[in-house]
């Protein structure tokens, strides 16, 4: 199990788009946003290790040199201007170095920069999700909408992940700007897909936007991230990214199926 997880990490045979047993790191990035998140994590980890080493050294040194046996009479230093200036300025500089990429990433996520090509509405219910593709409607009647239920625990087929697979996946085109509108119909929900770097809360009476652009075709798994009652664990999210042409075919097939 651990081996499988490690091979998933280091030998990129297949990219990790679903949670693995014993997984320690992030799932592989499918969007520039997730790549940004992973990079920021690594950037901050550099400072984290720097601070860890420095503080551990001070702590061990203090314990080593200033104990009762080696140093019975403690020094009574009340203040030292130089050290106080250094220990104030230096952490601020570190925080600055963390803050700059962090804010850059944060604002790049919610910026309205490009016109999206497709709007998909993810509507949370107790306990399933409804997806509405309303760009192809010609009236207020929904032409393309479906419910996405989890495959029950005793029912998965060979190769399906337990409690991660759904009956109807969200089909999206790859390399296309998507607008996800996330809203629930009853209690607060959440729409989260780790590979896409998306976690968007769904608040009743409010519609939240999150934009994604999936860079490669694949199947991405996510789970609800808002604790909201008994079947919280049983509403996974499965995004299937296909080519734009396959997406158009899928849409027209669905339209024919649903209108007849």
């Amino acid at each position: 199990m651990i081996l499988r997880s490690l091979s998933c990490r280091f030998l990129t045979i297949a990219l990790c788009d679903a949670a693995e047993p014993w997984q320690l790191g992030s799932q592989d990035a499918a969007t520039p946003m997730m790549q940004g998140i992973i990079d920021l994590h690594h950037d901050i980890f550099f400072f984290l290790i720097l601070i860890l080493v420095f503080v551990s050294r001070m702590l061990v040194r203090a314990l080593w040199h200033f104990n009762e046996q080696t140093n019975p009479i403690p020094q009574r230093i009340v203040h030292g201007t130089t050290i106080e200036i250094i220990r104030t300025i230096f952490p601020s500089v570190i925080l600055l170095f963390i803050a700059i990429p962090s804010f850059a990433l944060l604002y790049s996520m919610d910026g309205v920069l490009v016109d999206p090509a497709i709007t998909i509405k993810a509507i949370g219910h107790q306990w399933y999700r409804t997806y509405e593709y309303s760009d192809y409607n010609s009236s207020d009647e929904q032409s393309l909408t479906f419910d996405s239920y989890t495959i029950p625990e005793d029912d998965p087929e060979l190769g399906q992940s337990r409690l991660l697979e759904v009956d109807n996946r969200v089909v999206v085109p790859a390399k296309t700007h998507l607008r996800m509108i996330v809203t629930p119909a009853d209690v607060p929900h959440s729409w989260a897909v780790p590979s896409s770097g998306v976690k968007c809360d769904a608040v009743p009476g409010r519609s939240n936007l999150t934009s994604i652009s999936v860079q490669r075709e694949g199947v991405y798994y996510g789970q609800c991230s808002e604790i909201r009652g008994t079947n919280h664990a049983f509403t996974p999210i499965v995004v299937e990214a296909v080519t734009l042409k396959d997406y158009a075919d899928w849409v027209s097939n669905q339209l024919i199926l649903q209108t007849n």
Binding site: T119, I181, V251
Partner: peptide, 25 residues
């Protein structure tokens, strides 16, 4: 099979935030 037009509501600079409730309304 009818050709599908890939087109949706454009980004609106009156509603640049995550909260799109007003946009829809």
């Amino acid at each position: 099979m009818a050709e599908i037009e890939i087109k949706t509501a454009p980004a609106d600079f009156r509603f640049p935030t995550t909260n799109q409730t007003r946009h829809c309304f």
